[in-house]
Design a protein around this nucleic acid. Sequence first.
DNA 1: ACTAGAAACATACGCGACGTATGTCAATTC
DNA 2: GAATTGACATACGTCGCGTATGTTTCTAGT
Lengths: 197, 197
Amino acid sequence: MATKRAQMMEENRARLIAAARKAFADQGYAAASMDELTAQAGLTRGALYHNFGDKRGLLAAVVNQIDAEMAARAQAVGARAGDGWQALLAEGAAYIEMALEPEVQRIVLLDGPAVLGDPSRWASQNSCLEVTQHTVERLIAEGVLKPVDPEAAARLINGAALNAALWVAASDEPRDVLAKAIDAFRALATGLLAKPV
Amino acid sequence: MATKRAQMMEENRARLIAAARKAFADQGYAAASMDELTAQAGLTRGALYHNFGDKRGLLAAVVNQIDAEMAARAQAVGARAGDGWQALLAEGAAYIEMALEPEVQRIVLLDGPAVLGDPSRWASQNSCLEVTQHTVERLIAEGVLKPVDPEAAARLINGAALNAALWVAASDEPRDVLAKAIDAFRALATGLLAKPV
DNA sequence: ACTAGAAACATACGCGACGTATGTCAATTC
DNA sequence: GAATTGACATACGTCGCGTATGTTTCTAGT
Protein backbone atom coordinates (compact mmCIF):
# COMPACT_ATOMS: atom_id res chain seq x y z
CA MET A 1 0.00 0.00 0.00
CA ALA A 2 3.06 2.21 0.08
CA THR A 3 2.32 4.13 3.24
CA LYS A 4 -1.26 4.22 4.28
CA ARG A 5 -0.44 7.62 5.71
CA ALA A 6 0.22 9.37 2.40
CA GLN A 7 -2.85 7.79 0.90
CA MET A 8 -5.11 9.21 3.57
CA MET A 9 -3.48 12.58 3.22
CA GLU A 10 -4.07 12.64 -0.52
CA GLU A 11 -7.66 11.71 0.01
CA ASN A 12 -8.13 14.47 2.56
CA ARG A 13 -6.53 16.98 0.24
CA ALA A 14 -8.90 15.97 -2.50
CA ARG A 15 -11.91 16.28 -0.21
CA LEU A 16 -10.84 19.73 0.92
CA ILE A 17 -10.31 20.89 -2.64
CA ALA A 18 -13.67 19.52 -3.66
CA ALA A 19 -15.42 21.28 -0.79
CA ALA A 20 -13.54 24.47 -1.58
CA ARG A 21 -14.58 24.38 -5.23
CA LYS A 22 -18.16 24.27 -4.16
CA ALA A 23 -17.87 26.91 -1.47
CA PHE A 24 -15.82 29.34 -3.54
CA ALA A 25 -18.10 28.93 -6.53
CA ASP A 26 -21.28 29.37 -4.53
CA GLN A 27 -20.31 32.14 -2.13
CA GLY A 28 -17.16 33.63 -3.59
CA TYR A 29 -13.71 33.48 -2.06
CA ALA A 30 -14.11 36.24 0.50
CA ALA A 31 -17.47 35.08 1.81
CA ALA A 32 -16.54 31.42 2.04
CA SER A 33 -15.90 30.36 5.63
CA MET A 34 -13.06 27.98 6.32
CA ASP A 35 -14.94 26.45 9.24
CA GLU A 36 -17.97 25.59 7.12
CA LEU A 37 -15.81 24.48 4.27
CA THR A 38 -13.74 22.06 6.28
CA ALA A 39 -16.75 20.77 8.20
CA GLN A 40 -18.38 20.05 4.86
CA ALA A 41 -15.37 17.88 4.08
CA GLY A 42 -15.58 16.15 7.46
CA LEU A 43 -12.42 17.81 8.73
CA THR A 44 -11.33 20.92 10.63
CA ARG A 45 -9.22 23.95 9.92
CA GLY A 46 -6.23 22.12 11.32
CA ALA A 47 -6.10 19.88 8.27
CA LEU A 48 -6.48 22.84 6.00
CA TYR A 49 -3.64 24.91 7.37
CA HIS A 50 -1.44 21.86 7.50
CA ASN A 51 -2.01 21.00 3.85
CA PHE A 52 -2.34 24.37 2.17
CA GLY A 53 -0.72 26.90 4.47
CA ASP A 54 -3.50 29.43 4.32
CA LYS A 55 -6.71 30.35 2.55
CA ARG A 56 -4.88 31.59 -0.51
CA GLY A 57 -3.02 28.30 -0.78
CA LEU A 58 -6.29 26.47 -0.92
CA LEU A 59 -7.58 28.78 -3.63
CA ALA A 60 -4.39 28.24 -5.61
CA ALA A 61 -4.87 24.48 -5.44
CA VAL A 62 -8.46 24.80 -6.59
CA VAL A 63 -7.51 27.10 -9.44
CA ASN A 64 -4.81 24.74 -10.61
CA GLN A 65 -7.23 21.86 -10.69
CA ILE A 66 -9.86 23.74 -12.68
CA ASP A 67 -7.26 25.22 -14.97
CA ALA A 68 -5.90 21.79 -15.78
CA GLU A 69 -9.38 20.51 -16.56
CA MET A 70 -10.04 23.47 -18.83
CA ALA A 71 -6.81 23.02 -20.71
CA ALA A 72 -7.54 19.35 -21.27
CA ARG A 73 -11.00 20.13 -22.59
CA ALA A 74 -9.72 22.85 -24.90
CA GLN A 75 -7.02 20.58 -26.22
CA ALA A 76 -9.55 17.85 -26.89
CA VAL A 77 -11.73 20.28 -28.81
CA GLY A 78 -8.76 21.54 -30.78
CA ALA A 79 -7.62 18.05 -31.66
CA ARG A 80 -11.05 17.22 -32.97
CA ALA A 81 -11.02 20.17 -35.35
CA GLY A 82 -9.61 19.84 -38.85
CA ASP A 83 -6.63 22.01 -39.59
CA GLY A 84 -4.71 24.19 -37.13
CA TRP A 85 -6.57 27.36 -37.93
CA GLN A 86 -9.93 25.75 -37.26
CA ALA A 87 -8.47 24.35 -34.06
CA LEU A 88 -7.54 27.82 -32.86
CA LEU A 89 -11.03 29.10 -33.50
CA ALA A 90 -12.56 26.06 -31.86
CA GLU A 91 -10.39 26.45 -28.80
CA GLY A 92 -11.40 30.09 -28.49
CA ALA A 93 -15.05 29.22 -28.71
CA ALA A 94 -14.50 26.45 -26.19
CA TYR A 95 -12.99 28.91 -23.73
CA ILE A 96 -15.91 31.25 -24.13
CA GLU A 97 -18.32 28.43 -23.44
CA MET A 98 -16.36 27.09 -20.49
CA ALA A 99 -16.25 30.53 -18.97
CA LEU A 100 -20.02 30.46 -18.86
CA GLU A 101 -19.90 27.92 -16.07
CA PRO A 102 -20.27 29.71 -12.74
CA GLU A 103 -17.47 27.72 -11.18
CA VAL A 104 -14.96 28.78 -13.80
CA GLN A 105 -16.15 32.33 -13.87
CA ARG A 106 -16.24 33.00 -10.18
CA ILE A 107 -13.10 31.13 -9.19
CA VAL A 108 -10.75 31.39 -12.15
CA LEU A 109 -11.78 34.66 -13.75
CA LEU A 110 -12.90 36.84 -10.86
CA ASP A 111 -11.47 35.76 -7.52
CA GLY A 112 -8.37 34.06 -8.89
CA PRO A 113 -6.67 37.10 -10.39
CA ALA A 114 -7.78 39.34 -7.52
CA VAL A 115 -6.40 37.10 -4.80
CA LEU A 116 -3.48 35.39 -6.51
CA GLY A 117 -2.45 38.18 -8.84
CA ASP A 118 -1.96 38.01 -12.56
CA PRO A 119 -2.38 34.48 -13.94
CA SER A 120 0.99 34.62 -15.68
CA ARG A 121 2.56 34.64 -12.23
CA TRP A 122 0.73 31.56 -11.05
CA ALA A 123 2.90 28.61 -10.19
CA SER A 124 1.42 26.21 -12.68
CA GLN A 125 1.16 29.11 -15.05
CA ASN A 126 -2.14 28.83 -16.75
CA SER A 127 -2.28 25.60 -18.66
CA CYS A 128 -5.00 27.17 -20.77
CA LEU A 129 -2.62 29.82 -21.93
CA GLU A 130 0.01 27.26 -22.80
CA VAL A 131 -2.35 25.31 -24.99
CA THR A 132 -3.28 28.40 -26.96
CA GLN A 133 0.32 29.49 -27.22
CA HIS A 134 1.41 26.12 -28.60
CA THR A 135 -1.31 26.25 -31.20
CA VAL A 136 -0.27 29.75 -32.20
CA GLU A 137 3.38 28.77 -32.42
CA ARG A 138 2.58 25.88 -34.72
CA LEU A 139 0.45 28.06 -36.97
CA ILE A 140 3.14 30.69 -37.20
CA ALA A 141 5.69 28.05 -38.14
CA GLU A 142 3.33 26.82 -40.84
CA GLY A 143 3.01 30.35 -42.17
CA VAL A 144 -0.70 30.48 -41.49
CA LEU A 145 -0.42 33.32 -39.01
CA LYS A 146 1.54 36.54 -39.13
CA PRO A 147 4.85 36.35 -37.26
CA VAL A 148 3.64 38.00 -34.07
CA ASP A 149 4.89 37.13 -30.60
CA PRO A 150 3.19 33.84 -29.70
CA GLU A 151 2.73 34.62 -26.05
CA ALA A 152 1.31 38.04 -26.81
CA ALA A 153 -1.12 36.59 -29.32
CA ALA A 154 -2.17 33.83 -26.96
CA ARG A 155 -2.74 36.29 -24.15
CA LEU A 156 -4.82 38.62 -26.26
CA ILE A 157 -6.88 35.79 -27.69
CA ASN A 158 -7.58 34.28 -24.31
CA GLY A 159 -8.22 37.67 -22.80
CA ALA A 160 -10.74 38.52 -25.47
CA ALA A 161 -12.44 35.16 -25.14
CA LEU A 162 -12.67 35.19 -21.38
CA ASN A 163 -13.87 38.76 -21.28
CA ALA A 164 -16.52 37.94 -23.82
CA ALA A 165 -17.63 35.09 -21.64
CA LEU A 166 -18.12 37.35 -18.65
CA TRP A 167 -20.31 39.51 -20.81
CA VAL A 168 -22.33 36.61 -22.10
CA ALA A 169 -22.87 35.21 -18.64
CA ALA A 170 -24.07 38.53 -17.28
CA SER A 171 -26.50 39.13 -20.10
CA ASP A 172 -30.20 38.46 -19.99
CA GLU A 173 -30.26 36.44 -23.18
CA PRO A 174 -27.12 34.33 -23.18
CA ARG A 175 -27.96 32.47 -26.37
CA ASP A 176 -28.15 35.54 -28.59
CA VAL A 177 -25.21 37.21 -26.95
CA LEU A 178 -23.08 34.09 -27.18
CA ALA A 179 -23.60 34.00 -30.92
CA LYS A 180 -22.56 37.63 -31.25
CA ALA A 181 -19.52 37.09 -29.07
CA ILE A 182 -18.29 34.09 -31.04
CA ASP A 183 -18.95 35.94 -34.27
CA ALA A 184 -16.88 38.92 -33.18
CA PHE A 185 -14.21 36.60 -31.86
CA ARG A 186 -13.80 34.90 -35.21
CA ALA A 187 -13.60 38.26 -36.94
CA LEU A 188 -10.93 39.47 -34.58
CA ALA A 189 -8.92 36.30 -34.88
CA THR A 190 -8.71 36.62 -38.65
CA GLY A 191 -6.54 39.64 -38.01
CA LEU A 192 -3.75 37.24 -37.15
CA LEU A 193 -3.96 35.42 -40.49
CA ALA A 194 -1.02 35.95 -42.80
CA LYS A 195 -3.32 35.82 -45.82
CA PRO A 196 -6.65 37.40 -44.91
CA VAL A 197 -9.70 35.88 -46.51
CA MET B 1 -23.36 79.25 -1.24
CA ALA B 2 -26.44 77.11 -1.61
CA THR B 3 -26.29 75.17 1.63
CA LYS B 4 -22.97 75.03 3.36
CA ARG B 5 -24.04 71.59 4.50
CA ALA B 6 -24.06 69.96 1.10
CA GLN B 7 -20.77 71.56 0.27
CA MET B 8 -19.07 70.06 3.29
CA MET B 9 -20.60 66.70 2.53
CA GLU B 10 -19.32 66.77 -1.01
CA GLU B 11 -15.89 67.66 0.22
CA ASN B 12 -15.90 64.83 2.72
CA ARG B 13 -17.03 62.39 0.06
CA ALA B 14 -14.17 63.52 -2.13
CA ARG B 15 -11.67 63.12 0.68
CA LEU B 16 -12.92 59.63 1.47
CA ILE B 17 -12.75 58.60 -2.16
CA ALA B 18 -9.25 60.00 -2.47
CA ALA B 19 -8.09 58.14 0.63
CA ALA B 20 -9.75 54.99 -0.61
CA ARG B 21 -8.05 55.21 -4.00
CA LYS B 22 -4.74 55.28 -2.25
CA ALA B 23 -5.52 52.56 0.26
CA PHE B 24 -7.13 50.20 -2.27
CA ALA B 25 -4.31 50.72 -4.75
CA ASP B 26 -1.57 50.21 -2.19
CA GLN B 27 -2.96 47.36 -0.12
CA GLY B 28 -5.76 45.92 -2.22
CA TYR B 29 -9.44 46.00 -1.39
CA ALA B 30 -9.52 43.16 1.11
CA ALA B 31 -6.49 44.27 3.08
CA ALA B 32 -7.48 47.92 3.28
CA SER B 33 -8.79 48.83 6.70
CA MET B 34 -11.75 51.17 6.92
CA ASP B 35 -10.46 52.59 10.18
CA GLU B 36 -7.10 53.54 8.74
CA LEU B 37 -8.66 54.74 5.55
CA THR B 38 -11.08 57.11 7.20
CA ALA B 39 -8.52 58.32 9.70
CA GLN B 40 -6.28 59.16 6.77
CA ALA B 41 -9.07 61.37 5.50
CA GLY B 42 -9.52 62.98 8.91
CA LEU B 43 -12.86 61.27 9.48
CA THR B 44 -14.29 58.10 11.02
CA ARG B 45 -16.22 55.10 9.82
CA GLY B 46 -19.43 56.90 10.66
CA ALA B 47 -18.96 59.23 7.73
CA LEU B 48 -18.16 56.33 5.49
CA TYR B 49 -21.20 54.23 6.23
CA HIS B 50 -23.41 57.26 6.02
CA ASN B 51 -22.15 58.25 2.58
CA PHE B 52 -21.47 54.94 0.89
CA GLY B 53 -23.49 52.34 2.75
CA ASP B 54 -20.70 49.81 3.04
CA LYS B 55 -17.22 48.98 1.88
CA ARG B 56 -18.43 47.83 -1.52
CA GLY B 57 -20.21 51.13 -2.02
CA LEU B 58 -16.99 52.98 -1.46
CA LEU B 59 -15.19 50.78 -3.95
CA ALA B 60 -17.94 51.39 -6.49
CA ALA B 61 -17.51 55.14 -6.10
CA VAL B 62 -13.77 54.85 -6.53
CA VAL B 63 -14.13 52.66 -9.59
CA ASN B 64 -16.57 55.08 -11.18
CA GLN B 65 -14.19 57.95 -10.68
CA ILE B 66 -11.22 56.15 -12.18
CA ASP B 67 -13.31 54.75 -14.99
CA ALA B 68 -14.50 58.23 -15.93
CA GLU B 69 -10.95 59.51 -15.96
CA MET B 70 -9.84 56.65 -18.16
CA ALA B 71 -12.65 57.19 -20.62
CA ALA B 72 -11.83 60.88 -20.88
CA ARG B 73 -8.18 60.14 -21.52
CA ALA B 74 -8.97 57.52 -24.13
CA GLN B 75 -11.35 59.86 -25.88
CA ALA B 76 -8.75 62.60 -25.93
CA VAL B 77 -6.21 60.25 -27.46
CA GLY B 78 -8.71 59.08 -30.03
CA ALA B 79 -9.67 62.61 -31.01
CA ARG B 80 -6.05 63.49 -31.53
CA ALA B 81 -5.59 60.63 -34.00
CA GLY B 82 -6.28 61.08 -37.70
CA ASP B 83 -9.08 58.97 -39.09
CA GLY B 84 -11.43 56.72 -37.15
CA TRP B 85 -9.44 53.57 -37.70
CA GLN B 86 -6.29 55.13 -36.31
CA ALA B 87 -8.35 56.42 -33.42
CA LEU B 88 -9.50 52.91 -32.56
CA LEU B 89 -5.94 51.63 -32.55
CA ALA B 90 -4.78 54.60 -30.52
CA GLU B 91 -7.52 54.09 -27.96
CA GLY B 92 -6.59 50.46 -27.61
CA ALA B 93 -2.95 51.31 -27.07
CA ALA B 94 -4.01 53.97 -24.58
CA TYR B 95 -5.96 51.42 -22.57
CA ILE B 96 -3.01 49.10 -22.49
CA GLU B 97 -0.79 51.86 -21.22
CA MET B 98 -3.31 53.10 -18.68
CA ALA B 99 -3.70 49.61 -17.33
CA LEU B 100 -0.03 49.66 -16.50
CA GLU B 101 -0.69 52.09 -13.69
CA PRO B 102 -0.96 50.17 -10.42
CA GLU B 103 -4.03 52.11 -9.38
CA VAL B 104 -5.98 51.15 -12.48
CA GLN B 105 -4.78 47.62 -12.45
CA ARG B 106 -5.39 46.79 -8.82
CA ILE B 107 -8.68 48.63 -8.40
CA VAL B 108 -10.40 48.49 -11.78
CA LEU B 109 -9.06 45.27 -13.26
CA LEU B 110 -8.52 42.99 -10.29
CA ASP B 111 -10.58 43.94 -7.26
CA GLY B 112 -13.36 45.69 -9.14
CA PRO B 113 -14.70 42.70 -11.04
CA ALA B 114 -14.15 40.35 -8.09
CA VAL B 115 -16.06 42.50 -5.61
CA LEU B 116 -18.60 44.26 -7.79
CA GLY B 117 -19.13 41.55 -10.36
CA ASP B 118 -18.92 41.86 -14.12
CA PRO B 119 -18.24 45.42 -15.25
CA SER B 120 -21.19 45.39 -17.64
CA ARG B 121 -23.41 45.26 -14.60
CA TRP B 122 -21.85 48.27 -12.95
CA ALA B 123 -24.16 51.20 -12.33
CA SER B 124 -22.26 53.77 -14.32
CA GLN B 125 -21.68 51.12 -16.92
CA ASN B 126 -18.07 51.29 -17.86
CA SER B 127 -17.46 54.58 -19.59
CA CYS B 128 -14.39 53.07 -21.18
CA LEU B 129 -16.49 50.48 -22.90
CA GLU B 130 -18.90 53.10 -24.18
CA VAL B 131 -16.14 55.12 -25.78
CA THR B 132 -14.83 52.11 -27.63
CA GLN B 133 -18.30 51.05 -28.64
CA HIS B 134 -19.12 54.47 -30.08
CA THR B 135 -15.93 54.43 -32.09
CA VAL B 136 -16.75 50.98 -33.41
CA GLU B 137 -20.28 51.98 -34.33
CA ARG B 138 -19.05 54.96 -36.29
CA LEU B 139 -16.52 52.87 -38.15
CA ILE B 140 -19.09 50.26 -39.03
CA ALA B 141 -21.43 52.95 -40.34
CA GLU B 142 -18.60 54.28 -42.46
CA GLY B 143 -17.98 50.84 -43.86
CA VAL B 144 -14.48 50.64 -42.46
CA LEU B 145 -15.25 47.69 -40.20
CA LYS B 146 -17.13 44.48 -40.82
CA PRO B 147 -20.75 44.62 -39.64
CA VAL B 148 -20.18 42.84 -36.35
CA ASP B 149 -22.09 43.56 -33.17
CA PRO B 150 -20.62 46.81 -31.82
CA GLU B 151 -20.90 45.88 -28.19
CA ALA B 152 -19.34 42.50 -28.77
CA ALA B 153 -16.47 44.02 -30.69
CA ALA B 154 -15.91 46.69 -28.07
CA ARG B 155 -15.91 44.12 -25.30
CA LEU B 156 -13.44 41.87 -27.04
CA ILE B 157 -11.15 44.74 -27.92
CA ASN B 158 -11.13 46.11 -24.41
CA GLY B 159 -10.80 42.66 -22.95
CA ALA B 160 -7.80 41.91 -25.09
CA ALA B 161 -6.21 45.25 -24.31
CA LEU B 162 -6.72 45.06 -20.57
CA ASN B 163 -5.55 41.49 -20.40
CA ALA B 164 -2.46 42.40 -22.33
CA ALA B 165 -1.81 45.17 -19.85
CA LEU B 166 -1.91 42.76 -16.93
CA TRP B 167 0.65 40.68 -18.71
CA VAL B 168 2.89 43.63 -19.44
CA ALA B 169 2.72 44.87 -15.89
CA ALA B 170 3.63 41.49 -14.46
CA SER B 171 6.58 41.00 -16.77
CA ASP B 172 10.18 41.64 -15.90
CA GLU B 173 10.87 43.81 -18.91
CA PRO B 174 7.78 45.93 -19.44
CA ARG B 175 9.24 47.92 -22.34
CA ASP B 176 9.87 44.95 -24.60
CA VAL B 177 6.68 43.22 -23.65
CA LEU B 178 4.62 46.35 -24.16
CA ALA B 179 5.85 46.61 -27.72
CA LYS B 180 4.93 43.00 -28.39
CA ALA B 181 1.51 43.47 -26.85
CA ILE B 182 0.68 46.53 -28.89
CA ASP B 183 1.97 44.82 -31.99
CA ALA B 184 -0.25 41.81 -31.46
CA PHE B 185 -3.14 44.06 -30.59
CA ARG B 186 -2.88 45.90 -33.91
CA ALA B 187 -2.72 42.62 -35.75
CA LEU B 188 -5.80 41.32 -34.02
CA ALA B 189 -7.72 44.51 -34.59
CA THR B 190 -7.19 44.33 -38.34
CA GLY B 191 -9.43 41.30 -38.24
CA LEU B 192 -12.33 43.69 -37.87
CA LEU B 193 -11.49 45.64 -41.02
CA ALA B 194 -13.90 45.23 -43.90
CA LYS B 195 -11.04 45.45 -46.39
CA PRO B 196 -7.96 43.81 -44.88
CA VAL B 197 -4.65 45.35 -45.77
C1' DA C 1 8.02 -6.91 18.50
C1' DC C 2 8.58 -2.81 21.06
C1' DT C 3 9.63 1.78 21.51
C1' DA C 4 10.68 6.32 19.98
C1' DG C 5 9.84 9.79 16.93
C1' DA C 6 7.39 12.35 13.69
C1' DA C 7 3.66 13.75 11.18
C1' DA C 8 -1.30 14.68 10.37
C1' DC C 9 -4.94 16.58 12.30
C1' DA C 10 -8.01 18.61 16.27
C1' DT C 11 -8.77 22.17 19.71
C1' DA C 12 -8.35 26.65 21.94
C1' DC C 13 -7.10 31.42 21.74
C1' DG C 14 -6.04 36.19 20.22
C1' DC C 15 -6.41 39.77 17.06
C1' DG C 16 -8.51 42.60 13.84
C1' DA C 17 -12.19 44.19 10.89
C1' DC C 18 -16.84 44.99 9.39
C1' DG C 19 -21.41 46.58 10.24
C1' DT C 20 -24.94 48.53 13.44
C1' DA C 21 -27.00 51.02 17.06
C1' DT C 22 -26.83 54.90 19.72
C1' DG C 23 -25.33 59.54 20.82
C1' DT C 24 -24.01 64.46 19.67
C1' DC C 25 -23.53 68.73 17.48
C1' DA C 26 -24.10 71.96 13.84
C1' DA C 27 -26.97 73.86 10.13
C1' DT C 28 -31.32 74.88 8.15
C1' DT C 29 -36.04 76.29 8.46
C1' DC C 30 -40.23 78.28 10.20
C1' DG D 1 -34.71 82.03 18.23
C1' DA D 2 -36.11 77.37 18.86
C1' DA D 3 -36.95 72.95 17.00
C1' DT D 4 -35.87 69.54 13.82
C1' DT D 5 -33.21 67.27 10.60
C1' DG D 6 -29.24 65.10 9.20
C1' DA D 7 -24.17 64.44 8.98
C1' DC D 8 -20.89 62.39 11.54
C1' DA D 9 -18.61 60.24 15.96
C1' DT D 10 -18.47 56.58 19.39
C1' DA D 11 -19.32 52.06 21.41
C1' DC D 12 -20.47 47.34 20.83
C1' DG D 13 -21.40 42.68 18.94
C1' DT D 14 -20.09 39.23 15.85
C1' DC D 15 -17.37 36.67 12.86
C1' DG D 16 -13.42 34.81 10.61
C1' DC D 17 -8.54 34.10 9.88
C1' DG D 18 -4.18 32.50 11.53
C1' DT D 19 -1.33 30.42 15.25
C1' DA D 20 -0.01 27.82 19.15
C1' DT D 21 -0.65 23.82 21.65
C1' DG D 22 -2.34 19.14 22.33
C1' DT D 23 -3.41 14.26 20.81
C1' DT D 24 -3.42 10.23 18.18
C1' DT D 25 -1.88 7.31 14.68
C1' DC D 26 1.51 5.59 11.48
C1' DT D 27 6.36 4.64 10.35
C1' DA D 28 11.04 3.28 11.41
C1' DG D 29 14.97 1.57 13.81
C1' DT D 30 16.92 -1.95 16.78
